[in-house]
C-alpha cells in the first residue's frame, strides 16, 4: 500500500475507516484480522454471501456490518 494510493472511506460497524480504493470485502476482512473468524457481512443493508467476499468491491461511503454470534437468551 502506498500513501499516494487513492483512498475511500467506509463505515465499518459504525466507525469511519480509510482503505485503498478497489478494496474487496475479503481484503477488508483480512486487514481487520477477522479472516479466520466465523462472521457474516452486510453491505449497505444487504447480506453478502461468503462466496462473494473475494469478488465484491467496496465503494466510498459504503456501510459494512461485520457480525458474529455471542451469548444470548
Amino acid at each position: 500500500m502506498n500513501a499516494n494510493d487513492p483512498q475511500i472511506t467506509l463505515y465499518v460497524n459504525g466507525e469511519a475507516r480509510s482503505v485503498p480504493a478497489e478494496t474487496t470485502v475479503a481484503r477488508l476482512v483480512e486487514s481487520l484480522e477477522l479472516g479466520q473468524r466465523r462472521i457474516a457481512i452486510e453491505l449497505n443493508g444487504e447480506v453478502v454471501p461468503r462466496g462473494e467476499h473475494a469478488s465484491r468491491s467496496l465503494n466510498d461511503q459504503d456501510r459494512i456490518e461485520i457480525i458474529r454470534a455471542i451469548g444470548g437468551g
Binding site: 484480522e33 456490518e65 454470534a69
Partner: peptide, 13 residues
Amino acid sequence: TVAIRRTNIGQNA
C-alpha cells in the same frame, strides 16, 4: 440460543 451482534474490531484478537 445465541445473539447476533457486531464483531469487536481490533481488540481481543
